[in-house]
Every structure is written in structure tokens, then in C-alpha cells.
Design a protein around this nucleic acid. Structure first.
Lengths: 149, 149
DNA sequence: CTTGAACCTGAAGTGGCTAGAGATCGTATG
DNA sequence: CATACGATCTCTAGCCACTTCAGGTTCAAG
């Protein structure tokens, strides 16, 4: 067993970085491949060795991904974070654009929810009464709230 | 020009099927490839020829996709719709499962929305005051509603 | 020194399409 | 009947953000 929690923040293998950040090993390698994470130093046997800076950068990435930022947006935010000073306006623009996107998705899902509720309610699962209202509803576009006469 | 709207419901080329259903030509071929649409008859010159049944089936598929059903779910619903009688319970289960999924997505997006609002609000875009609050918020997980001490 | 978990690379697979290349078909005109 | 040109054909690759796999190498505990 490795003395993980304590203070190997100095030189960590990829598995420990994974444990610390909650990002899977394969995903870490993927992030390196697409240029989100810099290439770390290697052990004599060619294994990746990470330090504190990598933990922070990966945590940043993970947090942004959890918030649904696309990888390209994260790349931009990381670039800004690397060059402080010329940052704020652009970071704000990226966030607001993403917030907009999230709101659109919510709106769309809400209307889906409504129609699914309506469709599911027409048939409560008893085999008797319907044959089958759900399938009919899907087949017949005219029943739903949308157009198409 | 072809007499589209009137009554070529008998034998349609793929473009007309596309126009009637709002599903792109390439997508129609894709649906055939993955087994959602049956292989249609062909003209002497090997072009697809569709009839009324295809229009209905494709409309069904489109409606379900618009509602966010995954292709596998649609495959199941189509199977049910082909074998009426043993249908209703299973169709209901599929729909309810999907509705559940949609609700989870909504809940998740709502919490994302809240946090993005909070983060974006910390820096309103003026370069002066922040350097940069958004980037700090992303870097520092401890500020947000989640855990991690 | 042996074992076995962790690590390595590179390629392919996922879902649900979309886009492109390059060839062939079908039909409205001249 | 010939021509032009849009519609269609097949096949392949690309998109996003990973995930999975195969087959090998390294590291560290006992």
C-alpha cells in the first residue's frame, strides 16, 4: 500500500492523481492527448509522474466538465487562467454563453416531460383498456401539442 | 417536377419520404442500416421506393426521437407496435423509464444553472474588480454547493 | 526474487447521426 | 432521341468525450 493521503503530492503516479481528483485514469490520459493537461515527467520506466500543479489543473477541468462546459470552452478558460490579466471579459462571455445553453436544454426537456407525462397517463399499464394508447400517441402526431394539422 | 403532395403515396423516392416526414435523406438510410426501417423495394436502377407504410413507420420513429427516446427504446416500441396484444405493459414501462430519465436530466441541469448563475454573477464583465472570479470559482471547488471540505 | 497490481501504447467502439467523394439514375426539356 | 442536371447510390470518415480492449512493461510488497 502506498502512503496516499499524506504527502505524496510531490510525485504521484496516475492512479493516485485519479483517486485524488475522481477522474478516471483513461480520461486523464485522454486529456493529455487532446492538450488539456500538459505532458508530465516520466519515471525511469516511462510511467507518468504528477505533482501538485497537475492536481489543481485537473480539478479545474473536472469542475468545469461537471458543470457541462465543452472541452473547447475549458481549453479557452485554461488559457485565460494561464494568462491572468487579459482574462475576465472573455471568461464571463464563455460562462454566460454556456448558461444560455443550459437554459435552452432545460426548456426543451421540460416540454418533453410534459408530453411524456400526457402520453404515459393515457395508459396506466393495465392491459384491458388500451391497445395501446402510448403506441397510438406516438404514431399519431396530430394528438400532441405540436403542429402538422 | 414531381407531383409530390397529391398522391404518390404509392411509390415514393427517398427524397419525397424525407420531405413528408422531415427526416433527412441520410438519416433515413441510417435508420435502414440499423434496422429501424425495413429495406424497401428498389427501382430498376436500384433506387429506394417507399409506400404509405414507410411514411407511417418513419413518422412514428421521428416522433419518438423528438421525444428523446433512445434508438433501442424505439426499436422495442416498434416491435410492440408490430405485435399488438402483448404490448401495453411494456410500452408503458419504456415510457415511464424515459420520463424518469428526462426528469433526472432536468434536475441536474437546474442545479448546473444555479451554480453557473452564481459564478457568472461574481464577475459582471468589467475588467477592473476581478482577476478573475470565474476562474477562481472553477479552480476552487470549496466555493460551490458541493462537498470536498 | 517472485508475484500481481498498476501502468504503458495504440486501436477500435459508443450513439446518432452528418458530410464528403465519386459514380449512377431518372426525367424535363430541346 | 439526346442532353443536362438534380436526385440517388455506396462507401468511408468525422463528430464528441470518452471507454474498452489487447498485449505488453514496470513497480513495489513480501
Amino acid at each position: 500500500m502506498q502512503m496516499d493521503a499524506k504527502n505524496l503530492a510531490r510525485v504521484m503516479p496516475i492512479g493516485s492523481l485519479s483517486d485524488r481528483t475522481g477522474v478516471k485514469v483513461e480520461t486523464i490520459r485522454y486529456y493529455e492527448q487532446v492538450g488539456l493537461l500538459p505532458q508530465p515527467e516520466r519515471s525511469e520506466g516511462n510511467q507518468r509522474r504528477y505533482g501538485r500543479a497537475h492536481v489543481e489543473r485537473l480539478a479545474f477541468i473536472k469542475h468545469a466538465r461537471d458543470l457541462g462546459f465543452p472541452v473547447d470552452g475549458i481549453r479557452a478558460l485554461l488559457r485565460l487562467s494561464d494568462n491572468p490579466g487579459m482574462a475576465c471579459d472573455e471568461a464571463h462571455a464563455i460562462s454566460v454563453a454556456h448558461l444560455d445553453d443550459v437554459r435552452h436544454k432545460i426548456a426543451r426537456l421540460r416540454s418533453l416531460e410534459k408530453e411524456l407525462e400526457r402520453i404515459a397517463a393515457t395508459c396506466s399499464g393495465g392491459v384491458t383498456a388500451c391497445d395501446c394508447a402510448i403506441i397510438e400517441a406516438l404514431a399519431d402526431h396530430s394528438q400532441c401539442g405540436h403542429d402538422r394539422h
